[in-house]
Simulated assay, not measured.
Amino acid sequence: MIELGAPLKYTFDGFTIDSDQLCIDYQGKLLQIDSRIIKLMILLIQKYPEVVSQKELLETLWNGSVVSTWSASRLVADARTFFKSHQYDLAIIQTLRGRGYRLAPELAQRLNQPNNSVTPSQPVTTPTPAKNKKVWISTVVMLAIAAISAPIYMTAFHTEANTPRVIKYSEPLEVVGRILWVDDNPSNNEREVTYFETHAFGVYSALTTDDALTLLELYNYDIVISDMGRHDDPLAGMRLLDAMRARGDDTPFVLYTIVANEAQRHLFAEKGGYAVTTNPDTLVETIMNMPLQNSSNRFKDKP
C-alpha cells in the first residue's frame, strides 16, 4: 500500500490542511469534512507536479479495498464541491483524461506564497530576478500577437450558482466548424481545444446546461461536446442531450467523459447521441471525420 508523506500543515487562502490530525480549518474554525477528501488533498499536494493515477488514488485512499473507479471520480467531485461551498472559487483539482488527477497549478502556486507556512514537497518554480527580463519580453510578444489575432469575445454571466463568470470565445476567420463545449472545468480540455482551434474550428465554452441551452437558441453550432457530470449532477451530460432532443435540436452530440461502458453507450445512442469517448485521440478522430454544415452565419435566423 502506498503511504502518505510525513505529517505537515498546508495553508492557503485561510484554509489549513493538517495531515497529522486529518482535519481542515478555515480561519481557525474546524470544518466538517470526510477524512478521505483530506487524504486526497494531501496526496495531490505531496505528489505535485506529478499526476496521481486513478489506480494509485484507489490503492492509497481505500486501503486496497475493491471499489468502483467511479469512487475516485465521485471523491474528486465532492472535494471540489466542498471548497466551492466555502466560497473558494479557484480550481482545486485537475482531471487529466486517461492519466489521472493533479493538484491545480493555481492552488499549488498559492501554497508556494511566502505568507504560507508550508509549501508542496515539489513547489511550483517562479521566475528568479535573472529571468524577469526574459519573462517580461515574452509577455509583451504574446500580448502583441493576441492583439493582431483580434479574436471575437463574448460574455456569459449565468452559472448554476448564480455567480458571475466571464468566458472568452474565439473563432478563426475561415471557420470549418463550430463546437460548443460544455464542461464546468474547461481547463481539463485545453490541449484538445488548442488542437481544434489550430485546425480552424471555432470553440465556444459553456459551464452549465442552462448556459448551453441558451447558446444553442442563439447561435449555430456543428457539434456539441459535453462531459457527463457537472456540479452536483452526475448525469448532466445525458440531461442536456434529453433537453436538446426534446425541443427538436438535432445538433450532433459527443459525450467526452472519464469512464464509459456498453450500457452507457447504448443508452446514449438511444437518446440520439452521436458518440461516447474517453480518449482524446478518439475524440479528435471522431470530430475530424464528422460531416459539418459549415454554416456561414454564426447567428440563428429569426423565425
Rank of each mutant, 00 (worst) to 15 (best):
I2K: 12
L4P: 10
G5V: 04
A6F: 15
G14H: 14
I17E: 05
Q21E: 15
Q21W: 06
I24V: 15
I24E: 06
Y26I: 07
Q27I: 12
K29C: 08
L30F: 07
L31I: 08
D34V: 00
S35K: 15
I38S: 00
L40S: 03
L40F: 10
M41R: 00
I42E: 11
L44Q: 04
Q46I: 02
Y48S: 01
P49Q: 04
Q54F: 09
K55P: 05
K55G: 08
E56L: 04
T60W: 01
L61W: 05
N63A: 13
N63C: 07
V67H: 03
V67E: 12
S68Q: 11
S73A: 12
A77H: 10
D78P: 02
D78G: 03
F82D: 12
K84M: 12
S85T: 08
S85G: 13
Q87H: 13
Q94T: 10
T95G: 04
R97K: 09
Y101W: 08
R102Y: 08
R102W: 04
L103N: 07
L103R: 01
P105C: 02
P105Y: 04
P105A: 01
E106N: 04
A108S: 02
N116I: 06
V118S: 13
S121D: 10
P123Q: 02
V124D: 02
T125Y: 10
T128R: 06
P129M: 00
P129K: 01
W136G: 11
W136T: 12
I137H: 13
I137R: 12
M142W: 05
A144L: 14
A144F: 14
A147W: 07
A150W: 10
Y153V: 10
F157V: 14
F157H: 10
N162L: 14
N162W: 11
R165V: 15
I167F: 05
Y169P: 04
P172Y: 05
E174F: 14
E174W: 08
V175N: 11
G177D: 06
L180C: 08
L180Q: 05
W181I: 01
D184L: 00
D184G: 02
N188C: 09
V193S: 04
T194H: 13
E197T: 14
H199V: 04
A200H: 15
A200I: 03
F201C: 00
F201G: 00
G202Y: 00
V203W: 00
S205E: 11
L207D: 09
T208E: 07
D210N: 14
L215V: 02
L215H: 07
L215M: 14
E217K: 02
I223W: 00
M228W: 12
H231S: 11
D232F: 10
D232M: 09
D232P: 04
G237S: 09
L240P: 09
L241G: 09
R245L: 03
R247M: 03
G248I: 06
D249N: 10
T251Q: 01
V254G: 02
T257W: 05
A260N: 09
A260Y: 07
A260G: 15
N261F: 09
E262A: 11
A263Y: 15
K271Q: 14
A275H: 15
T277Q: 03
T278Y: 03
N279F: 12
P280A: 06
V284S: 07
T286G: 03
N289Y: 06
Q293T: 11
N294I: 01
S296T: 11
F299R: 12
